[in-house]
Nucleic acid binder design. Structure first.
Length: 272
DNA sequence: ATCCAGGCAGATG
DNA sequence: CATCTGCATGGA
């Protein structure tokens, strides 16, 4: 139950998992374990290939997005300077094809929070509320979340976001996600921002990571600082519109390269 | 002790 | 429309 991906420079498991798009993974030595919804995958780095081991091989072949040609995208982004440095630094990043409801709940938790704590909150939620699998817990379903109350998620450490998690889940559990996927990006952003705890930035992360809308450019505190010299102190919202227009369909990729680059230079390795 | 972390909601000009 | 403030929590 496994497959090999050769190290040809177009994919790197460390960069892909550490670039901030996913929170539910672990690293032990040269082995990564990733969880998506109710599924698990172990990735071992070998001399000249990555070995993927899972009971859901096809799911993770799609999850890790091996059908996108990242060389072409990188060549199409012709910026010099900062962007090209960021691409060189993170050229093995793939944008994952994640479970949409997991992304929504995870990024509600992410707001005004740090990655280490986001991961801990999500892990506790899975242990207490997720379906028990063989040796791990699934991400909680929207229905399971909706049955709990605000106090429960406060006890998970979610802070003031506890009520956002419950109330958004209670709305989302009756939503047809196939219908959401058929909406335009602007329509889908408008719907997402109507949910409690979801503003422009969280919505853009959900659009990119949960619905693969690569024409959005999420602007968080790191990205905002990276562009303040050039664009000044607009708000994050205006900056997101300007950058999405500038980079078009490549926005999401450029954003990930930049985020990973800037954050890696400023965050110690222990803070993960 | 103050600031910051993948910001948002609500109140007020 | 824009700007301002409070907010849970924990690490630096």
């Amino acid at each position: 139950m496994g497959f090999l991906v050769p190290k040809d420079g177009t994919f790197d498991v460390f960069q892909t998992l550490e670039c901030g798009q996913v929170f539910r993974y672990q690293k032990q030595g040269d082995c990564f374990t990733v969880f998506s919804h109710d599924k698990k995958c172990e990735i071992t780095e070998q001399k000249d290939s990555f070995y993927f081991h899972s009971n859901n091989e096809n799911y993770f072949k799609n999850y890790f997005d091996f059908d996108t040609n990242y060389d072409i995208i990188q060549n199409n982004v012709q910026d010099k300077g900062l962007i090209s440095s960021a691409i060189e630094f993170g050229k093995g990043i793939h944008i994952l094809n994640q479970n949409a409801s997991e992304v929504i709940i995870s990024f509600i938790i992410s707001s005004n929070n740090n990655i280490k704590r986001i991961k801990a909150i999500i892990e506790r939620m899975c242990c207490h509320l997720g379906e028990k699998k063989d040796g791990y817990f699934a991400f909680p379903t929207l229905s399971a979340i909706a049955e709990k109350d605000e106090k429960f998620f406060s006890e998970m450490g979610a802070g003031y976001r506890a009520k956002y998690i419950v109330n958004s889940a209670r709305e989302l559990k009756i939503v047809n996600f196939d219908a959401l996927k058929s909406l335009s990006t602007d329509e889908l952003r408008q719907y997402l921002t109507s949910l409690p705890g979801i503003g422009r930035k969280v919505a853009d992360c959900i659009l990119l990571f949960g619905f693969r809308r690569t024409e959005v450019f999420p602007v968080d505190t790191w990205i905002e600082k990276a562009f303040q010299d050039e664009l000044g102190s607009l708000g994050a919202d205006k900056m997101a519109k300007i950058l999405a227009k500038r980079y078009g369909e490549n926005s999401g990729y450029v954003q990930q390269w930049l985020y990973f680059y800037k954050r890696s230079l400023n965050v110690s390795r222990r803070d993960r």
